[in-house]
Every structure is written in C-alpha cells, then in structure tokens.
C-alpha cells in the first residue's frame, strides 16, 4: 500500500485525525510512523497550554508600569481605570504652539482637476459616485491649502465606488526632520479636531471616517507635529483651507 503523503504525516504530527485508509496505513507502517514522531517534537514542545493564546486578563499591579517607565524612560502614562477626560477648550495660560492667523480661502472649482483626481484613486477603488457638497455640484470638493508661505497645496474629497470617502492631499512643503506633517479636520470654532493621518510632501490620500460630517468639520488643516508622542494638535499649522468657503 502507498505511504501517506508528507502533508498527511504533518497533520498526524499535529494529532489531527487522518482519513480511515491513511490512518490504517500509519498504524502498520514503521517508516510513516517514524516520520510522524520526528515531526512531532516541535508541536509537543510548543503546543502546550502555558503558551496557548491568552484567555483571561489579569491586570498587573501598578509597580509593573513604574518599572517599565523607569526602564524605557517613557513619561507618557496609561490611563487608570477612571479615565480622565481632558477639559474641553480651556486655553492654557502659556500657549504651547505658534499662534497663526486663520484665513479663509476661496475654493477653486476645477473640473479638470477633478477628473485627474478620479483617475488617481482608481487603484484604491473605482470612482463611480461623486460628492456634491459644493453649490456648483462639482464631482469633487476641492480646497486650496494655504496659511504660511512655506507650504501650500490642495485637499480633495473623493467618494469611492463603495461610498467611502478619502481626502486626497497634495502638499507642497519642505521635508521635515524630527517632525512630521499631520492632516486634520477642524470645526469652525477651531476647538474640535480630528486627526486623519500623517502626510508627507507630495500627493497621498487619507481615509475619511464613516459618519464624519464635513459640514461640522469644514476646515482642513496641516500641522507640524514633533515626535513627542502627544496625539493632540501641536498648535503649529502650516496650511489650512475651508471646504465651505
């Protein structure tokens, strides 16, 4: 009778049940059994309950984090189990960021640009639906980003075929060392902000979360974020535009 296939012997080493024919062969064939035995050592050593996927959470005592923080020098702290909500919009006495004036810019309506954008995102999903938030009913909501002379660009809201939206950001700005650009949408009071992702000089897309109401967050903002681990806006914006302007 034919020997078991190498794949079947591997499954037998994992103690899976083989089809009846192969099982019978294995019981009577010394060479197949020897192969299973040789393959079995690794699963026997590793497939032990102590190393299995975790089941029960056991919160460690506080000194464990203290030891980790001491060993890594990390100063950020995990939340305790009564999460502190940051007080909204209390201006700090000493603003940590550069104060930049906000200017509204007219939205350029460029249907040719829209066509280019549609082509550019085909790889991410064919554009079959369009957004028509603008009073002109143009296929893509486009906004010029401008704030500081060092940086400029455009941001385009593109609706993909599956209804999801992306923001295509074309950023013309100097490359950064020890910092990065992040794109945000911000509400009109410049209080509520949603980070959308890291961007670099050039063209890229970031996802727009489902359910995000862009009329609530009409300001597109590009900030310079230091590598400090602080997820909040640095306060230093280099480019900004108003989707409703």
């Amino acid at each position: 009778m034919q020997h078991c296939t190498p794949e079947q012997l591997a499954l037998a080493a994992l103690r899976e049940t083989l089809p009846a024919n192969e099982d019978a062969h294995l019981a009577s064939c010394g060479s197949c059994r020897a192969e299973v035995t040789a393959l079995r050592r690794a699963p026997e050593l590793l497939a032990v309950p102590h190393l299995a996927a975790p089941v029960d959470d056991v919160p460690p005592p506080p000194q464990v984090w203290q030891a980790i923080a001491a060993a890594t020098g990390v100063t950020a702290t995990p939340a305790d189990h009564s999460p502190v909500r940051a007080a909204p919009a209390t201006p700090a006495a000493d603003p940590g960021g550069t104060v930049v004036p906000f200017r509204s810019r007219r939205r350029p309506v460029l249907l040719t640009a829209a066509a280019v954008v549609a082509g550019a995102v085909v790889g991410a999903g064919a554009v079959t639906a369009v957004q028509s938030t603008g009073e002109d009913g143009d296929s893509v909501t486009s906004v010029a980003l401008d704030l500081l002379p060092e940086a400029s660009g455009t941001a385009d809201v593109v609706v993909r075929g599956d209804g999801s939206r992306v923001l295509q950001v074309d950023l013309d700005a100097p490359a950064l060392e020890d910092a990065y650009y992040e794109v945000w949408v911000i509400d009109r009071s410049v209080q509520g902000m949603l980070p959308l992702g890291v961007v670099t000089p050039g063209t890229q897309t970031v996802e727009l979360p489902d359910g995000l109401d862009l009329s609530e967050y009409p300001l597109v903002d590009v900030s310079v974020e230091p590598l400090d681990g602080d997820p909040t806006h640095s306060g230093v914006s280099v480019a900004r535009g108003d989707l409703d302007a």
């Binding site: 007080a87 209390t90 201006p91 603003p95 960021g97 727009l208 979360p209 900030s223 602080d230």
Partner: peptide
Amino acid sequence: ALALREPIMGSVQAVGHVPGTRS
C-alpha cells in the same frame, strides 16, 4: 472603514496638554 472617533477638543492657538491626563 475607519470608525468615527471623538474629536480632540482643544484649540490650535492654545494647546493645553496636561501631563498625566489622557486624550
């Protein structure tokens, strides 16, 4: 799809990050 997160509340002009509190 990304889930919609709560916005960060704060101001661009005044970035008040209080050490030890969580975003």
